[in-house]
Amino acid sequence: MRRILLAFGLALGLTALAQAEIGNLLEGGRYVEAYQLGQRLASAESLALAAKAASFYAMYQAKEGERAEWFQKAEAAASEAIKKDPDYPEGYFERARALGRLSQYKGILQALAEGVAPRIRSDLEKTLRLKPDHAGAMVALALWHFELVQKGWFVAATQGADGSKVEPLMRRAIELEPNVIIHRVEYAKVLAAWGKKEEARKQLEVALSLPAKTAADRYDQERARQELAKLR
């Protein structure tokens, strides 16, 4: 029995170390390696990290012609994470992220035709039921409402999108995670689109003042610089 317990403890320790390594690869911008390692480990946690890595590769590093493929890989990995653990919120969040970014890449109208919008909302709402203080899901849900409202009242009405929910969700996410750069960049996008340019500028300036701890942070700050230049 003691040997079994020791072996089990060793296996858990090695798994924890491997998952920490996925985190290190993500932070360093080595997204393909992070994806591959997450796939090999095949736990709910590692598969969700693999999905995150695939989405980040598609968002930040992939060539134009391969972005859709990597978002699809992210969706598949997240779906596998959900199968492994239906109560793990990150699985639903990462699937929503993958589908949402793929929709932005393809075009919102095409995504609507494919019936993707309700799936994204369902995954985000599931994330928030499992983890009510999930700031990333709040930002993503705010963007879901925003993108659909931007397509006009008919699209918004048929999908149940509500523009009045956008800013409260964004503000709550920033209240929970004030130092997360991407939250502020996404909020600035909304503010600029709605003609609140001075408020958008402030959010972008804060985003640029925050410490960039990861490769994704640095990519997001570059985006913030580009958006700020458009406002000047």
Rank of each mutant, 00 (worst) to 15 (best):
Y35T: 10
E33L: 12
A58D: 04
A212R: 00
A16C: 12
K213Y: 03
G160A: 09
N24W: 08
L191V: 09
S103H: 08
A7I: 02
R121N: 08
L141I: 08
L109R: 09
R97M: 12
V32N: 05
K126V: 05
G23P: 06
A142D: 05
E90W: 10
A58M: 06
R2D: 12
S55C: 14
D85C: 08
Q39F: 10
G195A: 09
E21F: 12
K63L: 13
E186N: 11
Y35N: 00
K106W: 15
F8S: 13
Y31Q: 06
Y35Q: 06
P132G: 11
D85E: 15
A77D: 05
G152Q: 09
Q61D: 14
K230T: 12
A216V: 08
G65S: 10
G29H: 11
R129E: 14
M59N: 10
R184N: 09
R223F: 04
A96K: 01
D87G: 13
Q221G: 02
A34C: 03
I174T: 02
Y31A: 08
E205R: 13
D220S: 07
F154S: 13
L124K: 04
L41F: 00
L102D: 06
E80T: 06
S122C: 07
A161P: 06
R201W: 05
L10S: 00
R218F: 06
R184V: 04
S103V: 12
M1G: 11
I181N: 02
A68C: 08
L26Q: 01
N179P: 01
L204W: 04
V139M: 11
L124G: 00
V155Q: 10
E94C: 02
S209G: 10
V206I: 15
A117Q: 11
A74Q: 03
W144M: 11
L169F: 05
L143D: 12
E167K: 07
K189W: 08
N24I: 00
H145D: 14
Y57I: 07
E66Q: 14
R97V: 14
A76C: 04
M59L: 15
L14I: 15
A161I: 04
A48D: 03
D87R: 13
R119T: 12
A111R: 03
